[in-house]
Each structure stands twice: as C-alpha cells, then as structure tokens.
C-alpha cells in the first residue's frame, strides 16, 4: 500500500518534532485531518479532493511543526539583532581596513608594482569580509538560540535606559554588545596570527607560504602580545560589571595598553615585526627606522591615544553625572 497524502503530511510534520511529543501530536493531527476530510465530504466533496483541500488549508508542515515546538522562525531575533548589527559594523570597520592596508604594504614591500599592490588585496579583503560576516552571524545565531532556550539568563542585555543615549562628544557607555564585538575581534586577531603562518598572499618560488609576521617573534613576543590582549579584555569585563568608574580598572587598562604599544613600537622601529623574507631581505622592509617603521609607529600612536582617551573619558562622564543632574534640577526650579 502506498502512503496516502495524509500519511506523508503527518510524517513531514512530526519529523521536526522531538520524540517525546511526536506520538501524541501525530495521533491528534491525524484525528483532526480525518475530521476535516469527513466534514468536507459531508458537504459533497469527493474524498480525494477533500483530503487535498484539508491539507492545503493546514499549510506547510515545516511551519506547523515550528508552531508546535515554538521554534524560532528567525536566525537572529529582534532582541539580539541590534547587538548583531553593531558587532558586524564594528568588526568590518576595524578589521577590513587593517587587512587591506597590511596586504598593500606587504605586496609593495615584496616588490609588486603599484597597480598589483592596490588591486590584488581587494579580492582577499572581500573574502575576509565574507568570513567575518559568516563568523559573526554564526556566533550571534548560537547566542540567540541560547537566549531563547534560557530566557531567565538573558541578563546580557540590560534594559535600556536614557543613560545609554550618546552624548554629543562623549563615547557611549560601554555595553555588552561592545564587548562582544571586541571579543570577536580579539578571537579573529589571534586566529589571523596563526593562519598567516600557513596562508599568505606571498609565496616563494616553490609555492610555500611566506608568513607576514617575523617567525622569530613566536619565541617570545607573539605569545606575550596575545597574553596582554587577553588580559586587557578581562579588565574590560571587570570594568563592565562595575556600575561606576573605578580607578583600578582604568589604571590596569592603561598599563596594559602601554604594555602592548611600547614594545610593539620598539619592534617596528627595529624592523622586527614584518618578515624580511617578504621583500627578499632588501628595500625598506628590513631597515631599522625606515618609512614603514615611521608609518607603523604613527598609526600605533594614534590608536593608543584614542584607546587611552576612551578609558579616561568615561571616568569624567561618570563623575560628572551627578553634578549635571543637580544643575539641571537647579535650572528647572528657577
């Protein structure tokens, strides 16, 4: 005997339903469909037509199953969506320009002509953009599922208050979504450090990849930088858990930023960061104090200053909050 339309419909529905509910839903659904067919037949429809019409009205079995199990019908729900967009934007704006600029510099140092140096990295940057989008989307989809499964632990997103409105000149208060963005960035950065050892835009004549970062740094400096970055992230987590600004976390943040920036600047100055093999040991790349070193140190200094300003400005805002509120009330009374 071949399976009837109803059999196929019920099978398609319960396939998506957990075992312990499956039998009962199947029984109930069969009875309901049979009742519907009988009612339509009683109105004079031929049984096959009645079955067809009853199933058509019940609609897509996948949708029905989703309603039975109350499964989320969106990859990233409305609660998680703003943080998702924020993270995606932050990571794209920070990662992609860096990737592009580094690739341009590396190709140029390797002796490619200007056109190749400018255009070849576009493709790689687009590929990185796609990986980035997939990684961020995947992480948030998982986070969204977890939130839906444990609604009581959804404390990651604190309720919105007017305090979160951005000041005209102040950085907005740190939020979990900012931190998630940073965690994703740090994870990607560490992954990139490892990946560049085996995947590189530059290869030797026999096809082996030339790492972008100087391999000698792996003995001490790369593990050191990774440790400092992870520590800095930990400090930010601690800072976020404290409602008010604290001297300890700001000092720790500053110390870690300097512990990162100063040795890195020194290494750039000594031309020890980029692999000399990229330019076959010639040109500006292996020379200490070359234009590459100057450029790198300038960018590093700007990032460091911005980061330190961010750390210490949030102190001023938190401190100034009470005074501002007081003066506003005073004005209102006048």
């Amino acid at each position: 005997m071949t399976a009837s339309l109803t059999d196929r419909y019920v099978a398609a529905t319960v396939r998506h339903i957990p075992d312990k509910q499956r039998r009962e839903i199947e029984r109930e659904l069969r009875a309901a469909i049979a009742d519907d067919i009988d009612a339509r037949a009683a109105h004079g429809q031929a049984p096959p037509d009645a079955e067809y019409a009853a199933l058509r009205d019940l609609g897509d079995p996948a949708l029905l199953a989703a309603r039975y199990t109350r499964r989320a019908m969106a990859l990233i729900g409305p609660d998680t969506y703003p943080a998702y967009v924020h993270t995606l934007r932050v990571s794209c704006w920070s990662v992609l320009p860096i990737v592009y600029v580094v690739l341009v510099l590396v190709l140029r140092a390797h002796g490619e002509d200007a056109w190749t140096s400018i255009f070849r990295p576009v493709g790689t940057t687009l590929t990185v953009a796609m990986y980035l989008a997939v990684a961020v989307t995947g992480l948030f989809a998982i986070a969204d599922r977890r939130r839906a499964d444990h609604p009581d632990t959804a404390g990651l997103a604190e309720p919105w208050t007017p305090d979160r409105l951005a000041m005209a000149d102040d950085p907005p208060p740190a939020r979990w979504s900012d931190l998630i963005a940073e965690i994703v960035l740090v994870a990607l950065l560490i992954a990139a450090l490892f990946v560049q050892r085996v995947l590189s835009p530059v290869t030797t004549a026999d096809g082996t990849a030339v790492p972008i970062i100087n391999p000698a740094l792996w003995a001490f400096w790369v593990p050191y930088f990774i440790a400092v970055i992870v520590l800095a992230l930990a400090v930010k987590v601690v800072a976020l858990r404290q409602p008010a600004w604290s001297l300890a976390t700001s000092v720790a943040g500053t110390a870690l930023t300097l512990a990162l920036a100063v040795p890195l600047a020194w290494l750039f100055w000594q031309a020890q960061v980029l692999n000399h093999a990229l330019s076959h040991g010639t040109g500006a790349l292996p020379a200490a104090g070359s234009w590459i070193a100057w450029l790198a140190i300038l960018v590093l200094a700007l990032i460091t200053i911005a980061s330190l300003l961010g750390t210490w400005r949030s102190r001023n805002r938190n401190r100034g909050g009470d005074i501002d509120a007081g003066s506003t009330y005073a004005k209102a009374e006048r």
């Binding site: 659904l29 609609g59 029905l64």
Partner: peptide, 12 residues
C-alpha cells in the same frame, strides 16, 4: 482561526 494556529495553541 486557522487550523495551523489553533492546534499548536491548544497544546501550549
């Protein structure tokens, strides 16, 4: 009510 709304609703 649509059937595919009502049946899951009853279980809920």
């Amino acid at each position: 009510v649509a059937a595919n709304t009502l049946y899951p609703l009853l279980r809920r």
